[in-house]
Design a protein around this nucleic acid. Structure first.
Lengths: 344, 344
DNA sequence: ATGAAAGCGCTAACAA
DNA sequence: TTGTTAGCGCTTTCAT
């Protein structure tokens, strides 16, 4: 009735124990690499296990207080190349530390943070990586209270007690804007991201500061709202292009919107970068597929994923490790979508 | 000592039972939607659980013979947009059926099929989705033997006993080639995929058949080997372009290689589609980001993922369901990378 | 309709 | 160094 699983699990530590002529506890010791097992015994057990094709039952181990070697990863979804890159980094590091991965997507649960907690509470995972930009302080406090290990990836730490990784958003945006300025541009359009996010604010601020530093007056008309989606980049750009005095360059808060912007630009018959320069942020794979190849601010997405895992492992090894915040550097990747301003 | 997890699991069915004034068995019945619980009792239990913040422990449930509501997904990695699309479809359907997802990547284990079996045997997942093109018959037989539910996504079924989903590769390739022919092209280059895969062979065969049907002689020089990687598309195209009598159109066995091909074409100063037309296969998101937007053969990747999950669910519901093979249709998506042959 | 009791496969004291 | 004994939290007969 419970079919498969039981046939499969015909082989338990008891079977191995019998085959090896030892007790089940000894088998357990061997498989958990505990000290104090005679080499000969260990070999006997390993042999028996091999012969029977024994595989540990993670459920049982976990239930008995052992570890599952599984971590959770909560992401909005796979719709964005940005997230995929992070997941890839996570996967890489997981291979090194020999952990497995449960992937939870928030869109499956909506915005219901309480239900995210179930993922944490169901006993499957030892810790969780959070790639969710907007998490309430209550949610994080709940995790803190039960002492459940977690790491915020590219999200803010309101509590000050979280382990987290993020990047130099402000500096990246500053450099991107500065680059455009140095190419001679003065009318530089800006497409924002979702304003609630701290990364968005930091990029926005980097843009503003660069302008100020170079004594370029800030023109609110050149600042268009976006939401990180391709279409919002398209729309924002249409708006910018319709301006009486339109920008000669556009800095988009992410690559996906920059791609939308490129569509809008071409649609009105303008050339990139001859007529208008465009620069993005993220450096997702599509940035290279685009034509012209998109100049952008590189975020070390994969590395963020890797670092996230490492921070989780640190917490596993020592539950009392004080929280740690890591900031990774962004850098400008110059490709083909920008050029010096044509002065007619 | 076993720290967090235990604090977390302060609330068990016993706590709920006490709070509700019933036995633990009754609580279990309620949470498994079993018949024969008085409505009033059910309400009492639900209330108590709600109040205490009870969350089922999947480990314990599974160990006791219940279900985990978790499935496994074995993929090569997240490096390819193709795989990501499938995963997205899986995720969508999972949300509907309320299952969770363990993601296993083969590159973590190398080509060691035996170790994939551990994923199956560790008791965590109820079934597994295989997005691995080259799986030995032995491996599948092992799964069959223990009666473990699995579904092959876009992979061959050597045993004839597998549940599987794939697409009309042959027809797609035929139509793509035919489209090029109808645009007037006669020298049509072809970039193959990994020759060992049945999908690759089908696409190759579709190409050849279309040429034959239209009485176009097959020129081996126009057929270049690729491996589905971007760089191989680039290299293959360089080769094709160096031919004395170079092709006027190229059909690439996937989009990623087509993107590489576009780079190679532009590098020698040729224009797309004016000088040379290019068509891909897959319809990954990058196909639209590319410029010109890539004409390609659409594979319903997300749907493959969704159907895969459905086939798994069918097996859960009825372990005796005879195996089923589903083929989804591909279709030609005409965008901007092809045009009628210029006859000088 | 509900409760009592046994056991899923494993780990972790405690003995020996 | 090894074995014995108790659970971990849950589901599932079998009683009641």
């Amino acid at each position: 009735m419970t079919l498969q699983k039981n046939n499969l699990h015909a082989i338990t530590i008891y079977d191995v124990a019998r085959e090896a002529g030892v007790s089940d506890a000894t088998v357990s010791r061997v498989f958990n690499n505990k000290e104090g097992v005679k080499e000969a015994t260990r070999a006997k057990v390993l042999n028996a296990a091999q012969k029977l094709g024994y595989v540990v039952n993670l459920q049982a181990r976990s239930l008995a207080g052992g570890k599952t070697n599984v971590i959770g990863l909560l992401i909005p979804g796979l719709d964005n190349g940005y997230v995929v890159e992070i997941v890839r980094g996570v996967d890489q590091e997981l291979a090194r530390v020999d952990y497995e991965l449960m992937v939870y997507t928030t869109h499956r649960k909506g915005n219901d943070e309480a239900s995210y907690l179930q993922y944490v509470a169901n006993g499957l995972t030892e810790g969780i990586l959070l790639v969710v930009p907007l998490l309430s302080a209550e949610f994080l406090r709940a995790l803190d209270e039960i002492g459940y290990p977690y790491v915020l990836i590219d999200a803010v730490d309101d509590t000050g007690r979280s382990f987290s990784v993020n990047v130099t958003n402000w500096e990246g945006a500053y450099k991107a804007t500065e680059y455009l300025i140095q190419l001679g541009h003065r009318r530089i359009g800006f497409i924002t991201g979702i304003l609630e996010l701290s990364s968005t604010k930091a990029r926005y601020d980097g843009y503003l500061t660069a302008l100020k530093d170079y004594d370029i007056p800030i023109d609110q008309a050149l600042i268009a709202k976006g939401d990180f989606g391709k279409n919002s980049g398209y729309l924002a750009t249409q708006h910018l292009l319709n301006l009486a005095n339109r920008p000669t360059a556009i800095f988009s808060s992410n690559d996906v919107m920059a791609l939308g912007a490129m569509d809008a630009i071409r649609e009105v018959g303008l050339r990139i970068p001859e007529d208008i320069s465009i620069i993005g942020f993220d450096d997702v794979p599509e940035a290279v597929s685009a034509y012209p190849k998109l100049t952008t601010v590189h975020q070390p997405l994969e590395e963020m994923g890797r670092v996230g895992v490492k921070l989780l492992m640190e917490q596993f090894e020592n539950p009392d490790t004080p929280s740690k915040h890591i900031t990774l550097a962004t850098r400008l990747i110059i490709r083909d979508s920008c050029q010096p301003l044509n002065r007619e």
